[in-house]
């Protein structure tokens, strides 16, 4: 109501002022809508400024590197959540892709072959999840929970109870390359590229548009002629491919494939999305938010380490952070509705 009055006032004055006022209004509205994220950003900023050794190029780039594996998963998770589902099987899929890639190396494939094998394994798991959710109609939670267990079991069988060591086929990604004064690691670069490509895909292509419409209101999208079940399957396949890619990044770093590799990653990736303002109800949010949420998580971790706090506090602090964030988000949502 007040906004409408503001605008009609502006009509009398000069056009310049009207535009300025409109801009201020838009910014205010944006800040109000995203105020939990804004709050978090400033909190993180304050923490970083008050922490020694934080604000150095090396440290920043190392945060990016450490965030890369989780970041790629969060991008995939974000696609699924935007399409109205979510994926609990990401960590297990990452584990399977590691095992498959490791086995492929054992069979004598080169790194390109191992890369393809990892992505293929991830894509297959995603496709199965997607077909179950979209065509069979099982609930996303139950479906991906069961595939979490099934995929873990398959990983165990693939590895035959052993651990694969010295998986060096992706070691090239571990090396940094110089961008002028800034040093960027291979993993960080892959993370940034994945985020950017996913953003372009969701923002600028017809599939992305349909995917977000499916999550926003599946029935409305279907009646408007969107193939919603295909979009759901597509979202899970993207998540599976991202898990495969994350497995490649993981192997470039750890170089070991075990049966429990990647356990628990799925929850961190959902947390990244939530912190990044992706609505679990579907349709709302952006991969940029999810990537930022992931970086935020890793920043907090880094600060805890740099301040010399015990590593045990990490989980406690992150958990509280998510709760505080979700509470303030719910609060701002309520205000928006009653306005």
């Amino acid at each position: 109501m007040a906004e409408v009055l503001d605008e009609s006032d502006g009509e009398d004055s000069s056009q310049e002022r009207t535009r300025l006022r409109g801009f201020v209004l838009q910014v205010t509205r944006f800040l109000l809508r995203h105020w939990p994220q804004v709050l978090l950003f400033f909190a993180a900023l304050w923490l970083t400024l008050t922490t020694d050794r934080f604000w150095t190029g090396g440290n920043l780039s190392s945060i990016l590197t450490r965030a890369a594996i989780l970041g790629v998963l969060a991008v995939g998770q974000c696609c699924v959540i935007l399409a109205g589902g979510f994926d609990l099987s990401q960590g297990a899929t990452l584990g399977l892709a590691c095992a498959v890639a490791g086995t492929a190396m054992g069979q004598g494939y080169d790194s390109a072959g191992c890369f393809a094998a990892a992505l293929f394994a991830g894509g297959i798991v995603g496709a199965v999840n997607g077909v179950c959710v979209a065509r069979v109609g099982t609930n996303p939670f139950v479906t991906t929970l069961s595939s979490l267990m099934v995929v873990r079991g398959i990983t165990f069988l693939v590895l035959g109870g052993m651990t694969l060591n010295r998986l060096t086929m992706f070691a090239a990604l571990d090396r940094p390359f110089d961008l002028g004064s800034l040093e960027l690691s291979g993993r960080g670069f892959v993370f940034l590229m994945t985020t950017f490509l996913a953003w372009v895909f969701l923002r600028q292509t017809i599939w992305g548009q349909h995917l977000r419409a499916t999550g926003g209101n599946a029935e409305a999208a279907r009646l408007a002629g969107v193939r919603t079940d295909r979009m759901k399957i597509l979202s899970y396949v993207i998540s599976g491919l991202c898990s495969g890619l994350a497995a490649v990044l993981f192997l470039s770093f750890i170089k070991v494939a075990k049966a429990d590799t990647g356990a628990g990653y799925e929850l961190d990736s959902i947390a990244s999305c939530v912190i990044g303002g992706v609505s679990l109800a579907g349709g709302e949010g952006s991969v940029l938010g999810a990537a930022a949420g992931c970086l935020m998580l890793k920043t907090i971790e880094t600060i805890i380490t740099l301040r010399g706090l015990d590593d045990q506090y990490r989980s406690l602090v992150t958990g509280l952070l998510i709760l505080v964030f979700a509470a303030s988000d719910a609060w701002s949502r309520k205000r928006r509705r009653s306005r």
Partner: peptide, 9 residues
């Protein structure tokens, strides 16, 4: 009767 729009778009 139940309008079919995607609210977030």
């Amino acid at each position: 009767q139940e309008l079919q729009l995607v609210g977030s778009m």
